[in-house]
């Protein structure tokens, strides 16, 4: 393991980006690998000596911006301009998902789960059931616990799309995850589950 392959590399003086010299036997993936390296290098230049800080240190500017976008999204939602709210949530989401990768992934999960859940609500208000379902699903996937609203919205969209069995499954899964909050915040989930079960029954009766 004490040997390595000397690669035909050179550096562009102006842009400080590495490139592979043309060689007779080109190495597969070298170009893409170098491209990733150069992109990371450009991002790291913002730090002193290009050393990224430990994951716990977060750039507060971006967090503030995300929060602001989300808040204005909420405001737009309250004003019933749902399209506007959705647009703002989407912007916030973009900001959140493009966080640099050396920052805590837990934070991305937390933020994205919340924004997805909000956007699901906006989609529901506009009766975009499929999109609402997908957003809520994202939210549940990112943060299954303590996320009653997302579970509820996901099941609601499924119910509206007449996918009753799926809605039931999601509701059961949701109440499993929210077992700790049973009796406190999961009232909506139970009510919806009752509705769905009733709808399934009705459907069976109608088809029988």
């Amino acid at each position: 393991m004490d040997s390595f392959t000397l690669l035909p590399l050179t550096i562009d003086e102006a842009s400080k980006s590495l490139t592979a010299l043309p060689s007779a036997s080109p190495i597969p993936d070298l170009a893409s690998n170098l491209a990733e390296l150069n992109a990371l290098h450009r991002n790291l230049l913002q730090f002193d000596a290009a050393i990224p800080p430990p994951p716990g240190l977060i750039n507060p500017k971006r967090s503030a911006q995300i929060n602001k976008l989300r808040e204005s999204g909420n405001a737009a939602f309250r004003k019933q301009t749902f399209g506007e709210a959705k647009k703002l949530y989407t912007l916030a989401l973009d900001m959140c998902l493009t966080r640099p990768h050396w920052e805590q992934s837990g934070l991305v999960r937390e933020e994205a789960a919340m924004i997805y859940s909000n956007r699901a609500q906006a989609n529901i208000a506009m009766r975009n059931w499929a999109e609402g379902m997908c957003d809520a699903e994202m939210s549940c996937g990112l943060k299954p616990k303590d996320n009653v609203k997302a579970w509820y919205r996901r099941a609601l969209c499924l119910k509206e799309m007449n996918k009753l069995e799926d809605a039931r499954e999601i509701l059961e899964m949701g109440s499993e995850w929210e077992a700790e909050n049973a009796g406190k915040t999961d009232g909506d989930l139970r009510a919806l589950l009752r509705d769905v079960l009733k709808a399934i029954e009705d459907k069976e009766k109608a088809s029988a």
């Binding site: 050179t10 550096i11 003086e13 400080k16 590495l18 990733e36 390296l37 990371l40 290098h41 790291l44 230049l45 000596a49 290009a50 050393i51 990224p52």
Partner: peptide
């Protein structure tokens, strides 16, 4: 030899 800045070497090390 081309001159390689430390920042590039650090990036490569991180990768």
């Amino acid at each position: 030899p081309p001159k390689i800045p430390d920042s590039v070497i650090r990036t490569a090390l991180l990768r």
